[in-house]
Design a binder for these strands. Structure first.
Lengths: 167, 167
DNA sequence: TATTGTTATACTCTATAACTATA
DNA sequence: TATAGTTATAGAGTATAACAATA
């Protein structure tokens, strides 16, 4: 084959690929998310951080970093920005002066409620072609993928390429 | 609520969220992908570019950029790196000296075949908890999400935050 | 004029390594 | 010694703007 082709579609990596189907859906949902939230929205990782702090007030940065799957240094910047926006507070903990207790400010709670309303629209849009049953089924099937086993030594290998967990 | 909490889990953005379920599954599949491919693998975007060039030999950079959903300047770097690795060639087109005809080299074809074998393992791993029927169902449901309508003016708003399309 | 590819530049996000303070 | 947070630095990936060559 002198034209540089690799032959028929057998070698098309996108053909019958669950991984590709997930990635494509995720890219599209992010397009819808950004369009729904508007240009001034905080990033998905920040949204999730805000949501976790709201749901688990008092959590510290290390535990939050673990849940978001980012490193501690990366977490610092996220909290810095959320604090700079007046959405989150670092509060001193009486018993342990090494760490902070993270908490939402009043403005943070307002922002979270507003985000919750906007993400309801977003959720409706990305599921517009699904019945309620299909949507629930899709979520449960995705859960099964999300708990698939990572091969040995995977965390290390994947370390440099990880992505944050976002809505 | 003086502890900074936002109330009960109603405001947990990750609760009953299709968007979050998709993102979580995608993050996990990438962990498995990187672990399966090993540390020296080319990036998912490069893999997809290679696959598209293999399936559509002669495609030019602009058309490829469109399929990968990246800008032309970004495409230049991807092709530069694939050419630097000896996997892809820019060939002159007799009729139009503005653009190149992209084609795989022999090494590029070998690389693509090798990637195809590795991604088979990867696909098996991420689907390990699914039956064949569930896997097919999941893909078809994800397709419905991937074609969900982007709200008005979405492409512009999402432009600065887009991600590449990967396997 | 429109299209293709390129360069220059900058931004966001993430990581690793080394450090300080505290336990 | 171990843990929490921080700083400094670097790398990958993406974008926009401006430009040259060609159609």
């Amino acid at each position: 084959m002198s034209d540089g082709g690799a032959g028929p579609a057998e070698l098309d990596l996108r053909q019958d690929s669950l991984g590709y189907a997930i990635k494509r859906a995720q890219v599209r949902t992010y397009e819808v998310l950004f369009a729904t939230l508007g240009p001034d929205a905080i990033s998905p990782a920040r949204m999730t951080a805000l949501s976790i702090i709201g749901a688990q007030p008092g959590i510290n940065q290390s535990a939050l970093a673990e849940q978001l799957r980012v490193t501690r240094p990366s977490m610092v910047k996220v909290i810095d920005s959320l604090e700079g926006l007046g959405l989150v507070e670092r509060r001193a903990i009486p018993g342990d002066r090494r760490s902070y207790s993270l908490a939402l400010t009043e403005q943070g709670r307002r922002e979270l409620r507003d985000m919750h309303e906007k993400t309801r629209q977003y959720e409706a849009r990305i599921a517009e072609r699904l019945t309620a049953q299909e949507r629930a089924l899709l979520i449960s099937l995705l859960e099964k993928v999300a708990v698939s086993a990572v091969p040995p030594s995977a965390p290390e290998l994947a370390a440099g390429k990880a992505e944050d967990q976002g809505p």
